[in-house]
Amino acid sequence: MDAYDKQLEEEIPDFEEHAPGKHGAFDISATVSSVKIHGWKQVSGILAVAIVILGGLELLIRLFHVPEFVFPAPSATFKALVTSFPNNYPHFLITLGELVAGYVVGASIGLVLAAVLTQVPYLEKVITPYILLLICTPTLALVPLLMLKLGFNIWPRIIAVSLASGPMVMINSVTGFRRTDLAKIALAKSYGATTFQIFRKIRFPLALPMIIVGLLVGGIFGLITAVGSDMVGGKMGLGNKISYYSSLARMAHFFAIIILVAIIGISIWILFSRVGKKWASWTE
C-alpha cells in the first residue's frame, strides 16, 4: 500500500489545474521558449551585432595599438584558436571527459535519489539539508583535498563534477516529483494502476519539465567545476591552459581557450532546450 492510498482515503482531490514546470525555482519555459531563432531577419540581425562588436573591437585595438597582454584583437584570438587547436585538442577532450563522466554519475544518482526520496517524506526531510549543504558549498573547494588523496589525475575532477552536478539535478527533480497531482493519481488508481505504473505514467511525466531544468543547470555547474578543478593542480585540461596562458599574459591564446569552454556550455544549453522542446512543451 503506498502513500497515495492513504492520502486518498483522507481527502478527495481537487481538480484545480496545476501547471507543472511553471512554479519552481527554475522555469522550464526559460529553456524551451526563451530564444526562438527563425527567419533570416533574426539571424542576420544577430550576425550584424556580432560583426559590429567584433569589428569595432578590432578597429579600436588597432587604432590605439593596444598590446596583446592588455586585450587581444579578435583576429589574433581567432588565429590563436586555429593555430593552437592541435595543442589544445587533447585538453579539450580531457575536460569534456571529466565533465561527461562526472555528470553521468552525478546526474543519475541525483535523479534516482530524487525519485526514491520523494516517495518517503521522512527520508526526504532528513536528506535535503545535506543536499542543500552540497549545493551551497562550492565543491571546487574540495578539489585540493581530493587531489592530495587521489593525486593530480582525472579522478578528483570527476568526483568534483559529480558532486557539483548531482545535487543540482536532484534538487530540481525533487521539486518536480513533489508536484504530485492527487486528482491524476486518483484517476490512474481508479483503473487499478500499480505504484510503478503511477510513477511511470503520471509522476514521471509531471516531473519531467523540472528534471530537464535540473539536468541543464547540473550540466552548467559541472562544466564550471571541471574547468575550475583543472586550474587547481596537475598539467591538463582546459582550466589548466587558462591559468597557464594568463600567467604568461598570452591573452589571445587565453581567449581561444575561453571560446572552447563556451562551446561546451552552449552545446549543453542547446541539447537540453531541444530535449525540453520535445518532452516538456506541454507546459507552455
Binding site: 481538480f15 486528482a183 511525466p205 506541454w282 507546459t283
Partner: peptide
C-alpha cells in the same frame, strides 16, 4: 468515473 473537471493528462 467522470468528475467535474475532465482531469485529462496534458502531455
Amino acid at each position: 468515473i467522470i468528475f467535474q473537471q475532465s482531469n485529462l493528462l496534458p502531455w
